[in-house]
């Protein structure tokens, strides 16, 4: 059986908020390394991979591998009943029909108990090859979100170019064009506010802004985001948590 306790409900709430517009139904795979999820969006253009490691749980017990087939819209409805600071305990049998969720406030005088019906989801698991990226950019997640939102008002797609000068996001649309260039600027005092660029080779790729804006819903998970790019391979956007991560992969656009 599975028994997993999070000190703060906000962790799972934020993860679900971050991915629910990308995927609807997905398996939460529970095993001795924690809770993992991998799912592709309907159009096969974007993939999300999530891992909440056992170290992130106040208590974690999972005797055998359990797949929890969850509709994320339904899960979000149940999670609304949890306050951010509530302790959350997830419980499931070995072949579960339902996931039990218990939310307890810090004063220990309120216990909320919910059951979420599970579904059988036949989900394909994709192997993601190890990639040496041409460029890896680490920057404040709020800044990345702002750039994506601003450019999405002008165009459907953004060109991302990483060179030794910096990383440039540019787009052209019906009303005009826009570009934002970030130069390497490590912040010694507050590393989470700095921008660092590791460049093996110049990279230039084009991506759909609709998806990037969607990924930015994970900004609440981490102050920083890591963007990894290589020519002609999917973009990797990673939000690292203290004990886990949410990663998004996005296929590039090609041709004109």
């Amino acid at each position: 059986m599975l028994e997993a306790r999070l000190e703060q409900s906000s962790v799972l709430k934020k993860v679900v908020d971050a991915i629910k517009d990308l995927v609807q139904d997905c398996n939460f795979d529970c095993n001795d390394s924690g809770i993992q999820l991998q799912a592709m969006d309907n159009s096969h253009v974007a993939l999300v991979a999530m891992h909440l490691k056992t170290e992130g749980f106040a208590l974690y017990r999972c005797d055998r591998n359990i797949a929890l087939g969850i509709n994320l819209v339904s899960l979000q409805k149940v999670l609304r009943a949890a306050q951010n600071e509530d302790v959350m305990t997830l419980k499931a049998e070995d072949s579960p029909d339902a996931l039990s969720l218990v939310f307890e406030n810090s004063e220990n005088d309120r216990i909320s108990e919910y059951d979420l019906k599970l579904m059988d989801i036949d989900q394909e698991h994709l192997g993601i090859p190890e990639t040496e990226y041409g460029a890896t950019v680490k920057m404040p997640s709020a800044e990345f979100q702002r750039i994506c939102r601003d450019l999405s008002l002008l165009s459907e797609s953004v060109a991302i170019e990483a060179t030794k000068e910096g990383i440039k996001f540019s787009c052209t649309g019906d009303i005009g064009k826009g570009a934002v260039t970030l130069r390497q600027n490590p912040n010694v005092e507050k590393p989470e506010l700095g921008t660092t660029i590791e460049l093996q080779e110049p990279v230039a790729l084009t991506f759909s802004l609709k998806y990037l804006v969607n990924f930015c819903k994970a900004s609440g998970l981490s102050n920083t985001v890591t963007i990894s790019l290589s020519n002609e391979v999917p973009l990797l956007i990673e939000y690292e948590m203290e004990h886990g991560y949410v990663r998004f992969y996005l296929a590039p656009k090609i041709g004109d």
Binding site: M40, S43, H44, V45, A46, L47, E124, H125, L126, G127, I128, P129, E156, S157, T206, S208, V233, P234, Y249, A251, P252, K253, I254, G255, D256
Partner: peptide
């Protein structure tokens, strides 16, 4: 508009 690639081209079923 540029053509959007499919992830199946890059990632393999495992």
């Amino acid at each position: 508009a540029p053509f959007q690639e499919d992830l199946y081209k890059y990632f393999v079923s495992s």
